[in-house]
Each structure stands twice: as C-alpha cells, then as structure tokens.
Amino acid sequence: MQDAYSNRTNSTEVKSVTVNITPSEVLKKGDGIIFLETSDRLQPPPLVLCALESAARVYKDRPVAFFMKGLNDTNIEKMVKKHFSVLSTLKNIYFFPLRFEEVFTGTPLHSWYIKLDVQKQNFWLHVSADGCRLALIWTYGGIYMDTDFITMRPIPIQNFLSSEHPQQSSNGIFGFSSHHNFTQECLEDFVQKYDSSLWGQQGPRLFTRILKTFCDIPVFNGTDDVTCANITLFNPQRFYPISYPAWRQYYQVWDKLTTFSDSYGLHLWNYMNSEKLTMVPGSNTLAEHLYKEYCPSIYAAILNATNKH
C-alpha cells in the first residue's frame, strides 16, 4: 500500500533536503523536532508519515528532522522522492542518514559505542534508539518524538518529560535545551549502568531514576502537570490519554468522539500493535478522524490509493 500512494503524488517539489545541508545547520536554533528510524527500513508505514506531517503542520516555523539508518549519501535523494513524496509540500521536513558514531561523537556515549559488540546486544534496535535520541537532544536541543505520535497542538514548555504512569517518566517524547543537566546525567548513567538484557534500562527506567535524583517526584493532582527542579513532568493526559492496555481504541468506532482537549499529541502504541491494525478510510474509527484532521495529505493519499484498487 505504501508504494501505491507514495508514488502517485507530484514529487517535483521534493527538495534535495539533506544532500547539501547538515543536521547542525538545520537544528542550530535548538528548536527542532527529531524523529528516528534505527532499522534499515526505508519504506515507512502510514503512521510514521502521519507523525511527520502532523508535527510539521503544528510546528510550521520549526524544522522536523527524520534520521534514518537506511539512508546514505548515495541513495538519500532517490529514497526521499520514492517514499516521502506525499510530504513534498511541507518544506520544514528534513531527512538525514543516521550514523551512530557521528551522533555519539562528542557525547559520553562515544567511548561506550566504539567498544561495543553490537551483535551481542539484546534489544539493539531499541537500545540504539534510546542512545541516539538522548545524544541528539543533548547536542542540539529541541523535542524528540517516537514515530507513532500524532501531534495536535504545540507544546508550550521547553524542558519537559512526559509520564505514562504516576511518578514515572517515559522516553517516547521529551524536550530540552542543548547540554541540559538532565540529559547530561542521563548520558553518563546510560554508560555506567548499561545492561542490554533489561528492557527499558536505557529508556524509561533511565529517565525515571535520573529524575528521582532531581526531586521526589510529585504526585499528579487530576490533570495537572508537576514540576521537578527546572523540569516539567507532563500528566499522562498530555500524550497518553489512552493507556497501552486500551491501544485498540484507536482502531475502533467511538459512539462519541472526544476532542482530547487536555492533550498536545497522542501516542498510538505501535509497539503493542502486533495485529498490524491500520487506519482504513471510511471505517469511521478514531484513527481515521485523527488522520483526516492532523495529517490530511497522508489521509488523502491513502484514500486515493484505496479508491484505485
């Protein structure tokens, strides 16, 4: 389905993106939105494209950078035109090859990475993503988002974490100024307590244990956020109003749709989606309504491809 709609749009407007521009140039203001793909996948599913489009539309004046391990200097222009042409009218999206050693250079993770036998690491796709997101936000500043977030409204805080559960932090979405002391301490702890056999050790567990060194994490009162030192910890309602056990609700028809007025974005729990449920035009599911409103170009392309089959 992906090729069916990605190639049926005008690709003449796709810019040469990263061929003649570097991440440092694009992200130098510290206000970028950063996404990652740590596998070699070059043909992203519609949810990834929706995540990119929704972020680019909400943050019109900020760069949206997608770092992809499968891209390289010789294939980048061809691959962007082939798989991302539907996003060609959004001029603030940039694509970059993801090179681990370059990302880790100058950070506490570099010495750890060059000594590492990648083949012996458990959960390497996730561990490498945990390391890259930290290193990039520490280096450049900005907001990191997993590729299964649909952005709805701008986040009004610069230095923030988000909670899925009370008194715990996720690492699926966070934002900091460059070289912030929180990300610095996370990078150092990442190396000191590295254990690839423990799920989340370098991810949510890392963020939560470092946050606890800043303060006794306050308890949420209703839908209020809490503050820990100079960091805002967002209430689960901001990004996780549908919790992971209920993830299928995104692909169901609701009797009455909610506006998610307390949320800045929604996490669709792609990791949980072993059934490979997708947004289907005409299904009247919550996912369809979200695509229509927040990533209309992707929605139109999927609808067009569906009608032609």
Rank of each mutant, 00 (worst) to 15 (best):
N20W: 13
Q237P: 00
H126K: 06
S197C: 05
Y59M: 06
V19W: 15
L303E: 10
M68K: 07
A135F: 12
P241V: 06
D130Q: 09
Q119P: 00
F160C: 05
R238D: 01
L87R: 05
N20K: 15
R57L: 08
M145Y: 09
K120V: 07
K82H: 14
L277I: 05
L116T: 12
G222M: 05
G203V: 02
L266V: 00
L266Y: 05
L211F: 08
L98D: 01
N304W: 04
E13G: 09
K15I: 13
G265I: 00
C132S: 11
H180N: 14
C215I: 02
T232R: 13
I34D: 00
F260D: 09
P241I: 11
E185N: 15
L52C: 02
A51P: 01
F176V: 12
S24L: 08
L27Y: 06
L109T: 09
E101P: 05
R238Q: 04
L42R: 15
R57C: 01
K115V: 01
F149Q: 00
V127I: 08
G32R: 02
L136N: 06
L303A: 07
D255G: 15
L27F: 08
T227L: 07
Q202V: 06
T183L: 10
D189R: 14
E102H: 13
F67H: 03
D216W: 05
I150V: 12
M1G: 10
S274F: 13
D224K: 09
W247A: 02
I114A: 07
Q192M: 13
K91E: 12
E275I: 09
P46K: 03
L303T: 11
A51D: 03
L42D: 04
R8I: 09
F190W: 03
F96C: 11
S170P: 05
P296Y: 06
Q237E: 10
T208S: 12
S24N: 15
F104I: 11
T139W: 12
S16A: 13
P154M: 05
E188Q: 14
S162H: 01
M152E: 00
F96N: 09
M68R: 09
G265M: 02
I143A: 07
Y94W: 13
K115H: 11
N270S: 14
V127K: 04
Y299W: 05
S111H: 14
P108F: 13
A135W: 06
W112H: 15
D61S: 13
I34P: 00
I21K: 15
M152N: 00
H309E: 13
S196P: 05
S263Q: 07
K292T: 04
P166Q: 10
L27I: 11
K81G: 14
D3N: 11
E188V: 12
N230Q: 13
G70I: 07
Y113I: 03
T9V: 14
S178H: 14
E13C: 11
R99H: 09
D117C: 08
C215L: 00
T9P: 01
L90H: 06
G141E: 04
D31L: 10
I33G: 00
S274Q: 14
E164G: 02
N273R: 02
N159P: 12
L266T: 02
A51I: 04
M272V: 02
G141D: 08
W112M: 10
S196E: 03
G282H: 07
P46V: 01
F96S: 12
N235L: 01
